[in-house]
Design a protein around this nucleic acid. Structure first.
Lengths: 224, 224
DNA sequence: GCGCTTTTTTAAGCAAACCTTAAGTAGCCA
DNA sequence: TGGCTACTTAAGGTTTGCTTAAAAAAGCGC
């Protein structure tokens, strides 16, 4: 699947490109409206992700309109910093197929991309388990054995990410980019702090530890 | 199940498409009468949802009439902004099978869609219960034990939504999109206020509380 | 339609929970 | 040991949820 990303903020563009490539999409990036329009109308993409606010003679909305006029019907996911109803309307009226307000978490973007590309609904397990630890993504319940564990939002998000990637070390950068907003500027230390919180709740008081540090490579959760 | 939605207001069209897709329907959208008529008569749909007021040489009513003349008998749910008896008659006379006045809550549309598609009476229970609390979706009666409880419209809608999703936390955004009209622009605080009203009526004066806050994840109703 | 009541929504203040940072400590490996 | 990485603790700033009151909107009887 080929995706065109039109986004002028380099940092964000690179982060998104990387994340999308990790999901095995082929990603081209364009940094302004003119170039973006040219690429969108000449190359065959399966999806365009377009930022509303971009430099050049076209802004995001105008790129979409021009594209549609040129009879290019590739689905478009519009990114914008504003979230008012009026903006939402303008965005969807212009021909965008979906709409995402910044800042968003990477997981959210990936979900929308999957939806627009109508990927087979992956086998999204409801209940993740590692050893005697279980996490229910519908009820948000977490249990170790028969003991229910209360987690905060961030703790839950971190644990879910680690459990979805169980068995392999996840470095702090990838944890940050998946659990926090794409442009959140949190320190690696924040992850360390959350790992401590998590350990307090899921590992302290239990003899077999599940959350392991792999020095230099990150954290992994594993039953062993 | 495949649904064709003929609706020119993009914002509404997208909102409905998304909601229907969440219920696992395949949804095509057409934005005017001519295109809509063409699609309705060439593609095999299980249901058409048609807005009365749409641009093009056909309006909604005329699309239905033309469809029927072309011997296409797909059920039709007609949407309209007007709610007078005269309109209702005209609408149903033209060959529509059901009729919904805008603005409506999402839940109402979904219920009608299910009815028209004659989906197995899945979780369409008339009486919902949680512990000793019961809610009759037909008579609108709500009781806690033997005590009858008077609720306002919004309170009732909120309670029904929570009871249909009992056991799991529902965040404010999803509550808003299911309990309020699709184009309502209410604040999360509104939900908080309604939760307080509901608690006053169903939980205060009772020792076991049913409506729980799950910080960061939403509200859930549960017996335990 | 006009006032009155009821319902719905917004606003603002407060408390508690949560998130993040900073700074110091401990542990690992050359 | 020195340098780096990870761990720990505590403190502040921010966010979230609760509550109250009042404004706005919708219903209702006349």
């Amino acid at each position: 699947m080929r995706i065109l990303l039109i986004e002028d903020e380099h940092k964000i563009a690179q982060a998104l490109k990387k994340a999308l490539e990790q999901e095995n999409y082929a990603v081209d990036v364009s940094y302004d409206g003119d170039d973006g329009y040219a690429m969108a109308t000449t190359e065959p993409y399966d999806l365009n992700i377009i930022d509303w606010m971009i430099p050049g003679s076209y802004n995001g909305i105008e790129v979409i309109k021009a594209m549609r006029q040129a009879k290019v019907h590739t689905p478009v996911l519009l990114l914008t910093a504003k979230g008012t109803t009026a903006d939402r309307t303008t965005g969807l009226d212009s021909g965008a197929d979906d709409y995402l307000v910044k800042p968003f978490a990477l997981e959210e973007l990936l979900a929308r991309v999957r939806a627009l590309l109508r990927r087979p609904v992956e086998v999204q397990q409801t209940i993740l388990t590692v050893g005697d630890l279980s996490l229910n993504t519908v009820t948000f319940e977490v249990k170790r054995g028969s003991k229910t564990i209360e987690l905060t939002g961030k703790e839950f998000a971190l644990l879910e990410y680690l459990m979805r990637n169980q068995g392999r070390p996840n470095n702090k950068d990838s944890i940050i980019s998946h659990v926090w907003d794409y442009n959140a500027d949190v320190l690696p230390n924040t992850v360390e702090v959350y790992v401590k919180y998590l350990r307090q709740k899921i590992d302290d008081n239990f003899s077999t530890k599940l959350l392991h540090t792999v020095r230099g490579f990150g954290y992994k959760i594993e039953a062993k």
